[in-house]
Design a protein around this nucleic acid. Structure first.
Lengths: 157, 157
DNA sequence: ATAAAACCTCAAGCAATATTGAGGTCAACA
DNA sequence: TGTTGACCTCAATATTGCTTGAGGTTTTAT
């Protein structure tokens, strides 16, 4: 292994370097490690060291988080992939295809909600029996979260 | 005040009734009350009583939550409105117009993210210098959350 | 009259996603 | 060789949005 002038193997990264380059806090990297999202090895002084591919991995985690996927799900998705080599285009394709579907669903449900909001602005909404926001059995839940959205006999004073 | 056969004023609701009809748990109604989102008065036995308009208020809270607005913001938006009468169409219009804007933003940023995901599937993404997901100064943050998304020199082994 | 169901308060707990702090070690630079 | 900054672990704290539980009261039903 080639070593740099500072005794580090070429291209290995310290936790501080990863933090700076990936834009996440050191404490977050520690946290991700406890959650199994990332891994590291230790140098002789017990300090974490990372391969460059960690940057990609962290970036993927951040992208996935932006889509609204919880960390546990991200961890599970990433768990099938090796920690010690960069993600390939194929890895990424698999991951992102799945996340894209979930993202599509989120977008669709938010869009439906927005349309209902808009419609209700137009119709005066909450005083109307047929307003979609009052309609139980709705299709706009974020993920089947709740029962009915509004109930009957709303308007009887 | 007209009273029912059970001694309750006509149309006033107990916390259990509100829970059942609005689809939120009793504990949630208590919680919302501590947060100032809703109010109640007490009967002679110290039990909460609500006007029917509470149902509409709770429904609005739930709708707003679905758009991703935090409770504190919802509370603030609702704070300008009286607790003791139903929301009018105008009230609703003001609230929903503001929330719709935020919802639009969320949808736009998620859509941008999705498009980037899709694009990166096509381009092999993470190995390419010009992939939008690698591009700092991006416009896809949920709300300016983080610094750069990915960093340079990702691909050097 | 009495028992069950519903209600009350207050405190604690939970899940997710981290951040902060205390107390101590290691590494980089002058 | 210091000294300072970076790092270590582990525990505690923070935020949001609730739920659960203990211990006790009120309401409703029979």
């Amino acid at each position: 292994m080639k070593k740099s002038e500072f005794g580090r193997i070429a291209h290995e990264l310290t936790v501080g370097e990863v933090a700076e380059r990936s834009g996440v806090a050191v404490s977050t990297l520690h946290f991700y490690e406890t959650k199994g999202l990332i891994r590291s090895w230790r140098n002789s002084g017990n300090q974490r060291r990372y391969p460059r591919s960690i940057l990609r991995r962290v970036a993927v985690i951040k992208v996935a988080q932006k889509t609204g996927i919880p960390l546990a799900d991200i961890a599970e998705a990433l768990s099938v992939l090796p920690h010690d080599r960069p993600l390939t285009a194929t890895d990424w394709e698999r991951l992102s295809a799945s996340w894209k579907r979930q993202l599509d669903e989120r977008i669709a449900s938010l869009s439906a909600l927005r349309d209902h909001l808009t419609g209700c602005i137009g119709c005066g909404c909450l005083s109307m029996r047929d307003c979609p926001l009052r309609n139980p059995g709705d299709e706009m839940g974020e993920k089947g979260t709740g029962p009915l959205l509004l109930e009957t006999d709303f308007d009887e004073k």
